[in-house]
Design a protein around this nucleic acid. Structure first.
Lengths: 226, 226
DNA sequence: ACGCTAGGTGTACGGTGTACGCCTGTCAAG
DNA sequence: CTTGACAGGCGTACACCGTACACCTAGCGT
């Protein structure tokens, strides 16, 4: 049975699936070739190099973003767009890291940015203000904020002996009291949950609204730079 | 002449200098060993592995951050702290990428975060609000905002033929009119400078002040979550 | 029947991090 | 003194990475 031939689509689709299932590190040219039942160099007939492969994978995620209801006013429209982006990025755990590492602005990336910018402009914001707002949003236009604390520890790892754990906890409290304070507050005082205890969704929306509110105020009073 | 022995300090210092001079990619165990006149495996007697090396380099940069004048009120104190961090990170072009890639919260990292959190707390902000504000600031506490557009193109690269350049420019204008609009506005209409034309310092401070202003307002009206 | 070409193959090169064993100079205890 | 532990630098080796380059072959338009 002659398998159907490769294609850029098939390669990218397989890469996304592989990353979804086994993580971004599993997406090596060799690894990807293997799941496609093909020799590594075969991929290069469809993708120029690994960077382009990554770009293509990110583009695939962007393709899942949904446009907001056109009836919404600009803050809600931006909000809807970014939250849709967030949902897509969360569906692909690797996407965040991939987006952060890419610097290439593909047509898909530019298209999405253009849509976001367009939403502000149609809302009446000045070119000037819109420009700075885009910078202020930063990676939040991709639906995520930077991770402030550790990624949640691997739950399969064996916990350290209780004695030592208490000792390090005490030292932590002594050296970083303020961090401890806000970390425990976030988990309702459950110290053991401190690592992965933040409600990322809330944090995302908090920051987003903080920025959008600020922008709305600047816009309302006719802000202009310099 | 017996060279003085290696030490963790010396290794880290050499790594930082190497990265400063030749970029982060030049910092491989082999490359670093070479500039130290030593065999690669020798480094492992002083650093557990490459991740720890990177962590150490980041810690070195954090060591350059300066504490603000204690007489400042909280918004100015935070501002001063973050701008000091920014100066340090700008001194080491690689630091930004290194910080983004690290997930490990070393004592140095926690110490710095604790200082920032402490500044908010001493200003009277609630634990609750402070926590969310830290998330909202995100990587901005390291003195940089995410790059929205391409890194400036390598100026040594030969420019494409004028004809083709005009054609792609026209297509760009057709497909991404809004992006073009804000990009040209940022450079005063100089289209050729669009790539690296943003005033990053302004963007950083704009976003920072937008956030701090919003926070001050929330604080003033006694905001609390849920 | 011919030759072109798209697409898969095989081999090879130079790079990476790092595990493991060895060897040697220093220094403290017997 | 001698001895033995040990810190620290050395050498080799392994598995993995991206990818350059030459080759082969099936299918197709002329």
């Amino acid at each position: 049975m002659a398998r159907e031939p490769l294609s850029r689509e098939r390669v990218l689709r397989a890469a996304v699936e592989l990353a979804d299932g086994s993580g971004l590190d599993a997406v090596s040219m060799r690894g990807l070739a293997q799941v496609l039942g093909v020799v590594p160099m075969a991929l290069y007939k469809h993708v120029a190099n690994k960077d382009e492969l990554l770009d293509g994978m990110v583009d695939a995620v962007i393709g899942e973003f949904e446009a907001p209801d056109p009836a919404l006013d600009w803050p809600d429209a931006v909000r809807a767009r970014l939250l849709s982006a967030r949902r897509a990025v969360l569906r692909h755990a690797w996407a965040r890291r991939a987006i952060e590492s890419r610097t290439r602005r593909t047509p898909a990336v530019l298209g999405y940015m253009d849509a976001v910018v367009g939403t502000f402009r149609r809302g009446g914001l000045s070119v000037d203000l819109t420009h700075h707002v885009m910078h202020a949003l930063g990676n939040r236009i991709w639906g995520f904020s930077p991770e402030l604390f550790d990624a949640p520890a691997d739950p399969s790892a064996p916990p350290p002996p209780a004695e030592q754990q208490r000792a390090t906890a005490e030292e932590f409290a002594r050296r970083f009291p303020h961090v401890l304070e806000i970390a425990t507050a976030a988990t309702g005082g459950d110290l053991s949950a401190v690592g992965g205890g933040c409600d990322e969704q809330f944090e995302f929306e908090f920051a987003l609204d903080l920025l959008l509110d600020g922008v709305a105020r600047l816009h309302g009073r006719g802000w202009r730079s310099a």
